[in-house]
Computed example of a mutant assay.
Amino acid sequence: MRTSLIRRACVVALMMVTTMAPAAAARPAGDTKTPGIGGHARLLGERIIPHKLAFRGTTVGGLSGIDRNPCTGEYVMISDDRSVLQPARFYTARIAVDGTGVRSVDFTGTHPLRQPDGSVHPPASARDGKAVDPEELRVDPRSCRYWWSQEGDRPASAADPLIQQSVRIAGPTGAYRGRFRLPADYQYTREDRGPRRNKGVEAITFGSRGATFTSALEGPLIQDGPEPDLRHGALVRVTRQDRAGAVLRQFAYPLEKIFAASDPSSPWAPDTGVPAILAFPDDPDRYLVLERTWVAGAGYRIRVFDATTRGATDVRRMSSLAGRAVVPMRKKLVADFHDLKLSTVVNTEGLTWGPRLPSGERTLLLVSDDNFAEDEATQFVALAFRDR
């Protein structure tokens, strides 16, 4: 989700901070007795890195996805720079996370994401239809290759190129290694169907120890109904596929309604969606889902939900969800950043598992996309997750 034109009222003045906080109980959402879900999280700490940190000839920022590489023990983060500042790229880093929070973030490498011919991706201004909008990256647990999603672009006018969204596969230095086939209903069209502009596939995750691949659209398909407002949420499609691309099942995830009224003087509409989804390692039907919302005058709201597909309707053969009797995925609130006493709540878009703590809790590591804007921040947040 790109918000580079948005200006927030709060300016981040502290460029390097580690915060300790007591446990914060998440407020339950929906049925707190839903079988199969019910984890909760507490804040361990946070760290904000210097804005526009220079690293090996690149500008660190726009970090919209994070995952841990089991082959190296390092974390991998994708930047959503559309080859404007530097070519589309990813970063590797050693991140120390323990019961005291995020102790350090040390970048170790960066590589551009390559096209099949070995060249880097051109900027969107090239208007040749080959630009990409990187949003999420996951490490294949079987090969340790990088699978990354890019939203492409639904053209704003007939003169603009239509760039399909995709999931591509890269080697450890960014070399092109293939492409994964997404569901047919994820395709942009020049008609009033398919994903909305800038609301395509961001969230991806491996499940069942790499046997399955799940993706979530950021917002509802045009034909599935309107986007969330102050009164109503919306249904977002979540698709589980096998490694060959065959669709196993597709579900409707209930996206929350907008949490506050927008400043009437702002030209910007509220912006909400699902930027990350994370599979549980031992339950093929269970996911953590990150919801991120921005409202002019109210700022960001970041929430993590524990969700299950168990009992949900398989919607893969439904061309439209509007007016249909659909049982959506069930969910329960795990963490609301407004409850966690963070130094600031910003544009958090990346989510992954971290190490297990001596307490038995599993850590969650989240990262924010600063949009390369002076009034935003690249923030790492560590949570301790206890399962029920």
Rank of each mutant, 00 (worst) to 15 (best):
Pro112Glu: 10
Ser319Trp: 10
Ala54Trp: 05
Ser64Leu: 11
Arg193Lys: 03
Cys144Ala: 09
Ala93Pro: 03
Gln86Asn: 11
Phe372Arg: 12
Gly62Trp: 04
Asp117Thr: 09
Leu357Cys: 09
Ala26Ile: 06
Val367Asp: 03
Gly129Trp: 13
Gly200Glu: 12
Ala159Gly: 01
Gly194Cys: 05
Pro264Gln: 00
Ala131Met: 08
Gly207Asn: 10
Ala377Pro: 11
Thr100Arg: 07
Ala203His: 14
Ala335Ser: 09
Met1Arg: 14
Gly360Lys: 09
Ser266Tyr: 05
Gly30Asn: 05
Ala124Thr: 12
Ala335Asp: 00
Ala335Met: 07
Gly61Ile: 06
Ala261Leu: 09
Ala175Met: 07
Ser157Phe: 13
Asp242Val: 04
Glu136Ala: 14
Gly109Leu: 14
Leu85Asp: 02
Pro50Tyr: 07
Glu374Arg: 14
Ala126Asp: 09
Val102Leu: 01
Gly194Lys: 06
Ser208Cys: 11
Val105Ser: 05
Lys33Leu: 11
Gly36Trp: 13
Asp339Gln: 15
Asn198Cys: 07
Gln223Leu: 07
Met1Val: 08
Ala29Asp: 14
Gly73Lys: 09
Arg237Tyr: 10
Cys71Trp: 12
Asp106Gly: 02
Leu342Tyr: 04
Asp370Met: 03
Thr352Trp: 05
Val236Phe: 10
Ser64Thr: 15
Ala260Val: 11
Val327Met: 07
Arg145Asp: 12
Pro275Met: 12
Thr3Leu: 15
Ser64Gly: 08
Thr72Val: 05
Ser64Phe: 14
Gly57Lys: 13
Leu366Ala: 06
Asp314Trp: 09
Ser4Pro: 14
Pro275Ile: 05
Gly62His: 08
Arg89Lys: 02
Asp80Gln: 04
Asp314Phe: 03
Thr344His: 05
Ile169Val: 15
Leu248Ser: 11
Gly109Arg: 13
Gln250Tyr: 05
Glu227Arg: 00
Gly65Gln: 07
Ser79Trp: 06
Ala261Thr: 08
Asn69Pro: 12
Asp67Ile: 04
Ser119Phe: 01
Asn347Phe: 09
Lys341Ala: 05
Arg56Phe: 03
Ala279Trp: 15
Ser319Cys: 02
Ser166Asn: 15
